[in-house]
Design a binder for these strands. Structure first.
Lengths: 340, 340
DNA sequence: AGCAGTGCTTTGAACGATCAAATTGATCGA
DNA sequence: TCGATCAATTTGATCGTTCAAAGCACTGCT
């Protein structure tokens, strides 16, 4: 910076102003300084800025144990977030933790070591200790996931699971399906119940019964296959399966295939999350708009971190409920067939 | 830090010494300072240390486009790396790039903004511009992946793919298989050829022919399934398939299942990478020891970053070729059957 | 007594940036 | 002509830490 100042015959502060408050500098001077900056490739050192301003431009995000919180989705989210953050001059810092308490301890460490600007949390659930801890410490954060059942609210971004499953179910109904089953998770999962509700809503709106068409199982391929088999062997077998996840849907897909039936022609199957496995076997799936999620997260953080967002006034609280979209593949009717 | 110094009635420098060079401080004094540190929970600010020492304790790693370089594996690697780095007081910083040139530009940005300690590269290939660029800039780095065909060497860690496939093939031979096929990638992939070589070695050692038992295809489930079908329909069908990846293996698994055959009983299938999909369907697979890889990466970096590793003397160059291990599931003979 | 050596601790400067306040030079109305 | 106002720029202090050099007791040797 001293070099730039000398070359442009101005003081250090003027160089700083050209970068951080260009309106304070006369156009002529500014251009001269900018030319030198461009010529030398000067970029301010984050460490020095951080020391002075208490801003690191770092955002910490957890990287979960592989296999937890559906690794592939989190991975895609991390990617989208990293890309989007980069565009706003932020960077993503990783950390690990096996449970919420360890995660809180990780927050504490990160905050005292690095001078973090914010956190992005994933996998929120009811009575989430993490959000209350962060709120108490007045640390800016956004969650990917609604504050399920929690009273205190905070900026969040989420994907409307109910809307996704409703769309999936309506897609099947439009193609003539009348006996549509739902393969869901056990009770107690906020996300799971939300997705189930979408299926119910669509069925009820079309006057289709849901009784006896709901199976609850762990997020496991084998259990999905088994549940699918059970329903297919029942007195009144469904012609379509809407599933709470791709894992479960792939189980159903496997069972259908193993019976010599063709998914999409004989029995329809729809999953959730649009995993690579779904794409590989041609499974129709509800895709989360992760780029939009990442975008909304950073917009919320920008608002939180920009001056004016003091702890006193919490202006427009950012909440974004985004709509997923259906990726139609061979395991469900193609849109053209919607002639019924 | 000033608070600690005052409470312990010592100077700032002594507090610093207690933390960074305890041997310089008298035991009595040290204990007094340590007590105050413990009581106040003081931790030095990274930003200030970085400014002074030019060390950020930050390691940058790419997070690839989802679907590239087999996302799930990279994700698991990132997790292992994050955990291991945390243990050594380092943190992982993410960045994205779509190709090598953009990646190099990202290096440049990261280096001038943050004061990075090192990079960890993945997916090395022959004539890799990234490694030469980093070497030229004298930036410390380790690669997960051998410097395929490159003359200049640098610290690297890799998994012995040939050893993995050899082990897989020997496992099948020990169980009595004599007609073992290999589903591999097209020529030109260093990793692919390495894995193929393992299968060849095992076959040759056992006097089994490999001619006509090799299929080359893209890393795609459908192509894996197709190649499997072609071989099964040939005049001399194989009884077992060793595959270059889980994706391909799952294709073969699907084809076997669709024919009403039972994987592991009628036809054996073995994949590579031990993905969650493999675990879900019970596919035997070669697992990369990612914890060990992460460990070796950090050991190498520690050596690179510790004093004494000046650019002049490059003491013991770190290279680690780690052995993967076979995770035996239902799609291949169980070890007990090894009675033949 | 004087001087070098050793062990422990303190002092002053520096890392690279920004903030707050001071300075300079115009412009302008009274 | 003089002070007031305003825009553009500079000066001095500061963020929290570590480095380099110095200071201060002792000890031991001559």
């Amino acid at each position: 910076m001293a070099d730039v100042a000398r070359s442009a015959s101005v003081s250090l502060q003027t160089v700083s102003n050209v970068i951080n408050a260009p309106h304070l500098v006369r156009a002529e001077t500014r251009e001269r300084v900018e030319a030198v900056i461009a010529a030398t490739g000067y970029r301010p050192l984050k460490a020095a800025q951080t020391l002075r301003t208490q801003r690191s431009h770092l955002i910490a995000v957890i990287i979960p144990e592989p296999g937890q919180w559906k690794g592939e989705l989190h991975n895609a989210f991390l990617h989208a977030l990293t890309r989007r953050a980069q565009k706003s001059g932020y960077r993503i810092l990783l950390f690990t933790a096996v449970d919420d308490d360890e995660e809180i301890r990780a927050y504490d460490q990160l905050l005292s070591d690095y001078t973090l600007d914010a956190f992005v949390l994933t996998g929120t659930h009811s009575a989430d200790r993490r959000t209350s801890w962060l709120r108490r410490k007045r640390v800016p954060f956004v969650t990917f996931g609604r504050p399920w059942g929690t009273a205190g609210t905070h900026p969040w971004v989420d994907v409307d699971g109910a809307h996704g499953e409703r769309t999936a179910t309506e897609h099947l109904i439009a193609a003539g399906h009348r006996r549509i089953a739902f393969l869901g998770w056990p009770e107690g999962s906020d996300v799971g119940e939300d997705r189930k509700a979408g299926w119910e809503q669509a069925c009820q709106a079309a006057g289709l019964p849901t009784g006896g068409r709901l199976a609850r199982l762990e997020d496991d391929l084998a259990q999905g296959r088994e549940a699918c088999a059970r329903l297919l062997d029942s007195a009144d077998p469904p012609t379509a399966f809407v599933c709470v996840s791709d894992t479960v849907a792939l189980g159903a897909w496997t069972e259908v295939t193993a019976r010599g039936l063709v998914p999409g022609r004989d029995v329809a199957v729809i999953g959730f999350d649009d995993s690579t496995a779904a794409a590989a076997v041609g499974l129709t799936s509800v895709a989360q708009p992760l780029d939009e999620v990442a975008d909304a997260c950073l917009v919320a953080l920008d608002r939180l971190l920009s001056p004016g967002a003091g702890p006193g006034k919490r202006a427009a609280r950012a909440r974004a409920l985004l709509e997923p979209h259906l990726v139609i593949r061979s395991s469900s009717p193609s849109p053209e067939k919607r002639t019924s």
